[in-house]
């Protein structure tokens, strides 16, 4: 370390202050608001009551939370199911192909979510190509429900979060020693055996990363169920958002957010524990 006493040392205080002011304080406020009560016209009456938390355990809300949990879990699982073959094919492709694939998978990921959803909606709209295709195949369907339904939400989730699962998997596979695979093939193993016994066990770290990157944001997802599910699909994200904007019940919304955060923190801690065990 340098012994020059220069003002440069104090550079770090700027970003730290930013984080404290715009991250720590807001989160503290949410925690505090969670204990408050809703004022008559939607304001906040500062008090200290656990009523909001109690209300959050109402079966109605719990079921929504559960649904989000299951959907996020399912999304993560589906992303892995599809993401692993994708990452494997990428890692075993030629150098040029690899770079092209990296770009191809990054582009949708880095473009606006609203646009991508817009494209999906256009595709599945009553006068869109999907409708035409189904008519051609003489499949019965409800044209107006085509662009707003549960399965579409699932599709939207998986297609949005897939790149986030592929990145860490690919990063790990890129460094994988494929001579192990060759040795296994030489010894007569089928691909299924190779994948499950040799490759996937080495990917534990990457899988945990992928889990973190997919599951956590998926739990808070709002746009996809909102635009692709219509009023029928309500997830945790929509629920919380509603409290803040429509119902104007900020304390309750804060309590729900806090619970969500606690749930996610527990998941992260569990994941970190798993990570330590893997290493």
């Amino acid at each position: 370390m340098t012994q020059d006493k220069s003002a440069v040392r104090f550079l770090g205080w700027a970003p730290l202050t930013w984080y404290i002011v715009f991250l720590m304080f807001p989160l503290t406020i949410v925690a505090a608001t969670a204990f408050a009560t809703r004022g008559l016209y939607g304001g906040i009456e500062w008090s200290f009551t656990p009523a909001n938390f109690a209300r959050a355990f109402d079966p109605l809300y719990v079921s929504i939370l559960m649904r989000s949990f299951l959907l996020s879990l399912g999304t993560t699982f589906a992303c892995f199911l599809l993401g692993f073959p994708f990452a494997y094919s990428m890692a075993t492709a030629s150098e040029r192909m690899r770079n092209i694939l990296i770009m191809l998978i990054a582009i949708p990921f880095l473009t606006n979510l609203v646009i991508r959803i817009c494209a999906l909606k256009a595709f599945t709209s009553f006068d869109g190509p999907l409708a035409s295709l189904l008519t051609l195949l003489h499949v019965k369907f409800d044209p107006y429900a085509l662009s707003q339904n549960g399965p579409l939400v699932a599709f939207g989730m998986v297609s949005t979060y897939m790149p986030l699962m592929v990145f860490p998997l690919y990063a790990s596979l890129e460094r994988f020693d494929f001579t192990l695979v060759e040795a296994a093939e030489d010894l007569g193993a089928t691909f299924w055996q190779i994948a499950t016994r040799i490759v996937i066990p080495s990917l534990k770290g990457a899988m945990l990363s992928g889990l973190l990157l997919v599951f956590i944001p998926a739990m808070g997802e709002f746009l996809i169920p909102d635009l692709l599910g219509g009023a029928k699909v309500m997830l945790a994200g929509n629920l919380v958002s509603e409290q803040f904007l429509k119902a104007r019940d900020w304390p309750f919304g804060s309590a729900l957010s806090a619970l969500l955060m606690i749930l996610l923190s527990l998941v992260v801690i569990a994941i970190r524990r798993l990570e330590k065990r893997v290493q």
């Binding site: 949410v30 808070g220 958002s241």
Partner: peptide, 11 residues
Amino acid sequence: PELVLSLSLLS
């Protein structure tokens, strides 16, 4: 999650 960040900043 972005949602929580947004709402906490709003508060």
